[in-house]
């Protein structure tokens, strides 16, 4: 039982998973792109522009999930001084930031042919931009402070504000009139995306999640080695 909690055991296991992931991520992304650009049908109003959804929506989701996870871990570390939580959030934050930028960039490219504008200061878009700022402040929060106690405080405070922003992002389209359309997929009701379009969306989500897992494991190894090095030096 204790074998599974041993850091060196986790280290070897993650190494093995990494090797598998490295080989399967690229093919799955390629399948996802083929499905979203060639196989899936066009939309009845948007035509081919709907294909941008297959990368825009999963990226936005991943950036939201990532922020929820890093805030949870940062708060956990602040409350109970769980040092291993810092390794997790340090490995997750860069992934979330990347996908946040991807979501904003593809959103601009989707907005131009459909809405007729690259950017609008509506509640959803603005709160998403604020999320990217929160990511940047969070990363600065642990990169620029050498004192671990202080960085835990800064990161957890940013997390609290960021979590409120996360709720605002989620409900912005239902609370206020926005240019952005309301969400199509929810756990509690049938999705308003047709099945033939849901399939590429799910494949892309799966592919990008696997990619995130790959980067996460690599970053996790980097952070573990860094911690080891630090403890060796001291």
């Amino acid at each position: 039982m204790f074998k599974y909690l041993n850091p060196s055991y986790i280290f070897t296991i993650t190494g093995k998973i990494l090797n598998v992931l490295k080989f399967i991520v690229t093919p799955i992304i390629i399948i996802g792109v083929i499905f979203s650009v060639f196989v899936s049908p066009i939309d009845y109003i948007q035509g081919d522009a709907v294909r941008i959804m297959y990368i825009h929506v999963p990226s936005a989701w991943i950036s939201l999930i990532c922020f929820a996870a890093i805030s949870f871990l940062a708060i956990l570390n602040f409350l109970f001084k769980i040092k291993s939580a810092t390794l997790f959030y340090k490995s997750l934050a860069p992934i979330g930031l990347t996908f946040c930028f991807i979501a904003i960039f593809t959103g601009a490219l989707w907005g131009q042919p459909t809405w007729g504008t690259w950017w609008a200061w509506d509640a959803r878009l603005t709160s998403m931009l604020i999320l990217s700022f929160f990511y940047i402040i969070f990363i600065c929060g642990y990169k620029l402070t050498s004192n671990s106690e202080r960085s835990a405080k800064i990161c957890s405070f940013i997390s609290v504000l960021g979590l409120i922003n996360l709720i605002i992002i989620k409900y912005s389209v239902s609370w206020w009139p926005t240019l952005h359309q309301p969400s199509s997929i929810s756990l509690f009701r049938e999705s308003t995306v047709h099945l033939s379009m849901l399939i590429p969306l799910i494949i892309m989500l799966f592919a990008l999640l696997l990619y995130s897992a790959l980067i996460f494991l690599m970053k996790y190894r980097i952070e573990t080695i860094r911690v080891k090095k630090k403890s060796l030096k001291d």
Binding site: H56, S59, F105, I215
Partner: peptide, 21 residues
Amino acid sequence: GHGVFVWPSFIFPLLVCYILF
């Protein structure tokens, strides 16, 4: 006519992902 928007929205993010990797 949507290729100008669709292709960059796939190529740039995947490129960014590859660089990060």
